[in-house]
């Protein structure tokens, strides 16, 4: 997105809004990660404690999810930039 047409007050305001939004998005990403990994990794409810196998699965799942999100983010930014360039031609 391009905010260069905004005046100073608007840019300041927008920056704060975006900061809030990123915090919310991060929290939502975090809880969706936990939900997704828990759904995949935890299927034994004969005990209330996380088994070492379940814990390992959760850690791998969390690591992989973060790397996945980062990679999607990088590709997303490239595609977005391409789409913007195409529009300006």
């Amino acid at each position: 997105m391009d905010f260069s047409g905004f005046n100073a007050a608007e840019q300041t305001h927008m920056a704060r809004v975006i900061e809030k939004k990123q915090m919310q998005d991060f929290m939502r990403m975090y809880s969706s990660l936990v939900e997704r990994c828990f759904t995949s990794c935890c299927n034994d409810f004969t005990s209330k404690a996380l088994s070492s196998k379940e814990e390992q699965c959760m850690m791998n799942c969390a690591d992989k999810f973060l790397k996945h999100s980062e990679r999607v983010g990088a590709r997303f930014a490239e595609q977005n930039a391409e789409a913007m360039n195409a529009m300006q031609k």
Partner: peptide, 23 residues
């Protein structure tokens, strides 16, 4: 849209056995 891509492509591409933490 970004969140939907993250979710959809995770479903399409990521093996849910989670034997390792790297892609």
């Amino acid at each position: 849209i970004f969140n939907r891509i993250v979710s959809t492509c995770h479903n399409k591409c990521i093996n849910t056995r989670y034997a390792e933490g790297d892609l």
